[in-house]
Structure formats: structure tokens, C-alpha cells
Design a protein around this nucleic acid. Structure first.
Lengths: 199, 199
DNA sequence: GTCTATAAATGGATAGAC
DNA sequence: GTCTATCCATTTATAGAC
């Protein structure tokens, strides 16, 4: 399938995607301000002039790297059939997975939005996009089946918590390769959210 | 008391402190890489040459801004007398307050450590410094009175969560003045940690 | 569509006067 | 202890050839 796609795609499109992908990883690892257009171009295998053919500024490129292309990741389960406990558990795990597989985007948005207000719109678009599980949660809160809380702030807290834990591991072992959510992080986070520590 | 102190202090010391304070706020608000030594000097009311008399490089200044001068903030309660519930509640609130009143330092360390490994040492020194409440928690975990968890990772999660919530508010209202922990953040975070949502 | 070459501005850092 | 003036490397961004 990727074969078919890449045959269809024009050279220019591929170059553009390569630049975005390269820039995203660099912004994620070193931050926007510390990443030069020179190094992006070099690692993407193009010249700086080419980069500026596709993006009229470095900021435009930044915005492209956080576009929600990979953000939607939701299953279409029958959330209505779940118990409160089950729903919350599913919701938490879906959130963790979504953030994990898009952690460069989330990390960039969370880290750079205060510094570069141009990103705020993308931040809001991401944070306020509702999954089906979200909607069902809100539904039950409205009906009184679940305690009413600020779900957005709650979610922000979980994402911040998760990203901090990932960062923590990376500070300890900068060479670590994260192919899936590290089990100890998932456990500690679930433990945190479910209040398991509060016996 | 500040009067007495300022009389005692030499001019140079005051200048140095002014530079650190100014730099800390700028690093916090705009990030290390986006903050120039020119703007630090200007806002501190000195020339760049003066700044470089006190700090041999911009990185040295960064390290000074996160030094734990304000970090210790702990009470000396009789933690042994508290019930598990009370201890956890006290521990959580102390952590929140500590992070809040030193949020520039925490924020800088959390945001810049991956990008600038020179900071890792400070990161570790901060994260691994144990308060009395920490020690009592570990104690009870060892005795089996509380479930055993990775307390460090747990703490990292809470700090990340808290900083993300603060950032979230600031993205919404960049003019906001935070004089104390916003009640909705404290509530949501407590609600998160105590698993109140998991009925 | 991509490159080489370069403009224009800004960055961190220092020498030397007062 | 502090400043003015300046150095040199690096940065974003572009013009014009292929």
C-alpha cells in the first residue's frame, strides 16, 4: 500500500514530506529555536533553497510539523456498553497510545506554544478535539453517572504527566529506543490516574 | 529584613542576583535558546560586557538560574502521626506548593534538560532530593502499609501534570497573574491523584 | 525542482577605556 | 565594576543558474 502511494506521489510531494518528517524529529529532540534550517535541509538531503521553496518561513514549517495528520487514532468501540470502570480504563489507555504514537507532535505543541503564540491555535485544536470515548464520558458526567470534572484540564494533566515520564527516561538513557509505551510508565500512570496509591 | 540584607550585600552581588533573576524569568517565558544575552542584559539594566564578567558563558548563567536556592521548602511536621490518607494528602499538597513557588526553575529544568545535557545533573539533584514526607512514604511502602510504586516516576508525573496545567492556563490567557495555585488546577490535580474520578 | 552562492541581520563573546 | 565599540561565527532567507 505504501508502494502504491509512493508511486502515485509526485517527487515534490515526497520531498516536502521528507522535510516535514526531518524537521519534526529535530524540533522534538532539540527544540524549535535550537534547530537551524541548515541542519534540517542537510538531514533531509536537500539544500536550504529547496526548503524555502516549500515553506515560506521556518515558522510555516513548524506549523506543518504539528498538523494533526497522525492525531486521529481512535477505535470505534461501543462505548455505551461499557461500565464506568471499563470506560475510564479504555479512555485512559487510548489517550496514552494516542499521545505515545504522536509524541513528537504533542511534545512540540506543549513545549513551544507558550514561546510561539502562532502555535496556540494548533494546541487548542488538538486538545479540544473530542474522541468517541471523550463524548461518552461527558455524556455520563451530564447524566450524573460520573463526578463532574474539568475533562480538558484533566486530560492536559495526563498528557503532561505522560510526556514528563517519557522525558525522564530519556534523560537517564538518551540512547533508549522507545518502540512501545514502556510498561513501568504505563503502570505508574494508570496507578496515578486510578488512585491506586490512595488505598 | 530585606533592608538589612541589601545593606550588607556588595554591589556586585546585587548585580549578579539581578542578572540571574532576570535571566530565569526570560528562560522560563521564552526558553533558553530564544533568549539572547542582549535582552537579558538590557532587562537587568547592565551591559552585555558586565554580564560576561559574572558568567563566563550563557550556559553558566543557565545553570545558575536553576540552582536549588529556593527549592527546599518543606515543613517539619510529625509525619509519623498521620494516617496513610492524611500523609498522602499532605505530601501531594506540599509537592504542589513547592513546584508552584519554584515553577520557573522546575519548568526550565524539565524543558531544557533533554536539549542541554549540561542540565541533567541539576535535574537529577532536584528530582531525587527527598523531603521528610517522601521518606515517610518510602518507609510505609517498605513496611507494606502502602502499595509499592516507583515514587520518583510517580512524582515526575505529578510535576509534569501540574506544569502542563499551568501552561494550559497561560496559553488561554497570557496576561494572567498567578499569585497562588489556581483552585481549579489544585482541585483537578488532587482529583486526578486521588482517583476521585474512578468511583 | 534543485542547486550554488550570497545577502542581511543577529548571535555570543571580548578588548580596552573610564 | 561597568561601559562602548567591535569581532567573528552563525542564522534566516533569497537571487539566479542549471
Amino acid at each position: 500500500m505504501t508502494e502504491v502511494q509512493s508511486v502515485k506521489k509526485k517527487k515534490g510531494t515526497l520531498t516536502k514530506e521528507k522535510i516535514i518528517k526531518t524537521a519534526r524529529n529535530l524540533f522534538y529532540k532539540k527544540g524549535y529555536d535550537a534547530t537551524t534550517t541548515a541542519i534540517i535541509a542537510k538531514e533531509a538531503g536537500v539544500s536550504e533553497a529547496t526548503l524555502y521553496k516549500y515553506f515560506k518561513s521556518k515558522m510555516t514549517l513548524l506549523l506543518s510539523t504539528v498538523e494533526p495528520e497522525c492525531i486521529p487514532f481512535m477505535e470505534n468501540k461501543n462505548y455505551q456498553l461499557l461500565t464506568n470502570q471499563e470506560l475510564l480504563s479504555v479512555w485512559t489507555n487510548e489517550l496514552i497510545d494516542k499521545v505515545f504514537y504522536n509524541r513528537p507532535q504533542y511534545s512540540i505543541i506543549f513545549n513551544e506554544s507558550t514561546k510561539h503564540p502562532e502555535l496556540s491555535e494548533q494546541y487548542i485544536a488538538n486538545i479540544y478535539s473530542m474522541s468517541n470515548a471523550d463524548l461518552e464520558l461527558v455524556n455520563r458526567m451530564d447524566k450524573g453517572d460520573l463526578p463532574k470534572i474539568d475533562l480538558i484540564l484533566f486530560q492536559v494533566g495526563i498528557i503532561g504527566s505522560f510526556l514528563a515520564m517519557i522525558t525522564h527516561m530519556q534523560i537517564y538513557d538518551p540512547t533508549i529506543k522507545l518502540e512501545k509505551v514502556p510498561p513501568n510508565i504505563r503502570n505508574t500512570l494508570i496507578c496515578l490516574i486510578e488512585g491506586k496509591f490512595f488505598v
